[in-house]
Amino acid sequence: MIRSLPALALVSALALAACGANGSAAGDSADTTPATTTKSGKPFTSAEMGKFEEPWALAFLPDGRILVTEKKGVLKLVRLGGDTVDVAGVPKVDYGGQGGLGDVAVHPDFANNGYIYLSFAEAGDGDTRGAAVARGKLVLEGTPRIEGLQVIWRQEPKVSGQGHYGHRIAFGPDGMMYVSSGERQKFDPAQDLTANLGKIVRLSDTGMIPSDNPFYDQGRVKAQVWAYGIRNPLGIDFDSEGRLWEMEMGPKGGDELNLIKAGTNYGYPKVSNGDHYDGKDIPDHAPGDGFEPPKVFWNPSISPSSLLIYKGDLFPDWKGDAFIGALSGEALIRVDLNGETATKADQWPMEARIRAVEQGPDGAIWLLEDGENGRLLKLTPAY
């Protein structure tokens, strides 16, 4: 999926269930009122545009074709109303648990350079693995293929387990590449600035470290870090003012939407509005605790999978709002964004786990269902 401002945009893991909040956030208080569910019918119609095996992400090419990743390591090139073919040259993935082929993003200047980006779970020594991001040129003449694929970023260190990779990719208005890096179910690395687990990292489009990163002069891994104290960040996107938002699958009772600021600590696992799955308490966000609280959090669980800040014109009333795919919640969720504030708005039941949400070139909203035979859906206004 590509995540960027319109000027830059060309536009399956079985996730652990995450829950909502057990307390009030400090500072910028989170909205805890129940989200509205449309009872008289959804304000959009849904059209099936294809089916895939464990799809994880999608991105649009300038000519309207779509790239769709499948978790087992297949990249599909989809021509609507035409053929769907496999793209050759995809990296070998470590498939299992939440791991496999993840996000796909198109370079903001794809029309001139042809670069795409893939995130995936990569095997390490012994029983270890970690997320990686690779880039290569997508060649569409003849057999579609990726040439010159090169890994430009890796989670460090690689660890055991098959969960919480995060690995969403977004290009910012500054031309930089932002990658969400989960804490791999290891808790403490989210606070450890010598590791890049549990972080949002900021890199150039070639994987170099920008000199204006907040910890640039403090070691190679730490220099990558843009924000930290993050659990399993499964959605990142920029709003029209260039603010970076992050959708995070929290612990039991702690799914949250964060406004990401450079050098900021979001608290996990020291604080959270949720608790550990074994029942152990995590202190709630509190005034003066030194951690940035979420803008919105959820109780009960929604298990967020993805995030889109809508910038199209097809749904004019929703321009600038956040859209979230929900796994255990089996819903599409809308959050009203107004500057740096967020308010829950709508929660539409979709009768399926939603793995990805994306905006199409014409302003339609596109969804990918999770799991086997996951449908690609196009949402357009119902009236």
Score class of each variant (00 low, 15 high):
Ala57Tyr: 01
Gly99Glu: 14
His107Cys: 09
Asn22His: 08
Gly64Asn: 05
Arg65Glu: 10
Gly102Asp: 09
Leu58Ile: 10
Ser46Thr: 09
Gly20Lys: 03
Ala30Lys: 00
Asp31Ile: 01
Leu16Met: 07
Ala47Trp: 00
Gly114Phe: 14
Glu53Asp: 12
Gly23Met: 02
Asn112Cys: 07
Asp125Asn: 14
Lys71Ile: 08
Leu101Lys: 09
Asp31Gly: 00
Gln98Phe: 08
Phe52Val: 04
Val106Thr: 12
Asp31Tyr: 05
Tyr117Pro: 12
Ala17Asn: 08
Ser24Gln: 07
Val87Phe: 05
Pro91His: 14
Thr69Lys: 06
Pro91Cys: 10
Gly89Met: 10
Met49Pro: 01
Ser29Gln: 03
Gly73His: 09
Asp83Phe: 03
Leu67Lys: 03
Gly100Trp: 12
Ala111Asn: 12
Leu80Glu: 15
Leu61His: 06
Tyr95Lys: 15
Asp109Ala: 14
Thr84Ile: 14
Leu58Ala: 05
Ala88Trp: 05
Asp83Met: 06
Ala26Leu: 00
Leu14Asn: 07
Tyr115Ile: 05
Pro91Gln: 11
Lys51Tyr: 01
Phe60Cys: 03
Ala26Lys: 01
Val90Thr: 13
Leu67Asp: 08
Ala25Tyr: 06
Ser46Pro: 02
Thr37Cys: 02
Ser119Val: 13
Asp86Val: 10
Ile66Asn: 04
Lys39Asn: 02
Phe52Gln: 03
Leu77Arg: 07
Gly89Cys: 13
Thr69Gln: 07
Gly73Lys: 08
Ala17Ile: 05
Arg65Lys: 10
Ala123Ile: 12
His107Thr: 11
Asp125Lys: 13
Asp109Leu: 10
Ser40Lys: 07
Trp56Phe: 08
Lys51Met: 06
Leu58Ser: 04
Leu67Ala: 05
Met49Ser: 03
Pro108Asp: 15
Gly97His: 09
Ala18Leu: 02
Pro34Ile: 12
Lys92Arg: 13
Thr37Lys: 07
Tyr117Asp: 13
Gly96Gln: 10
Val87Lys: 02
Ser29Glu: 05
Val68Arg: 02
Leu75His: 07
Pro91Gly: 11
Lys39Cys: 01
Ala59Thr: 12
Glu70His: 03
Trp56Ile: 01
Pro55Ala: 08
Asp109Thr: 15
Lys92Asp: 11
Gly73Asn: 11
Val106Cys: 11
Ser12Ile: 06
Glu48Lys: 12
Phe120Cys: 13
Thr38Arg: 03
Leu101Pro: 10
Val106Met: 11
Tyr117Val: 14
Gly126Pro: 10
Glu54Cys: 04
Leu67Met: 07
Phe44Glu: 00
Ala18Ile: 03
Leu101Trp: 13
Leu101Arg: 08
Phe52Lys: 02
Tyr95Trp: 15
Glu48Asp: 14
Val78Lys: 04
Gly126Asn: 14
Ala105Ser: 15
Thr38Leu: 06
Leu80Arg: 10
Gly73Met: 10
Thr84Tyr: 04
Asp103Trp: 02
Phe44Lys: 01
Gln98Val: 07
Ser24Tyr: 04
Leu14Cys: 04
Phe52Glu: 04
Ala105Met: 12
Lys39Phe: 00
Ser46Asn: 04
Gly126Leu: 15
Pro55Ile: 08
Ala88Cys: 08
Gly41Pro: 02
Gly50Trp: 02
Ala21Leu: 02
Pro108His: 11
Ala35Thr: 10
Leu16Gly: 11
Thr69Asn: 07
Asp28Val: 06
Gly99Asn: 12
Asn22Thr: 08
Tyr115Val: 05
Thr38Glu: 06
Tyr115Pro: 01
Ala121Glu: 15
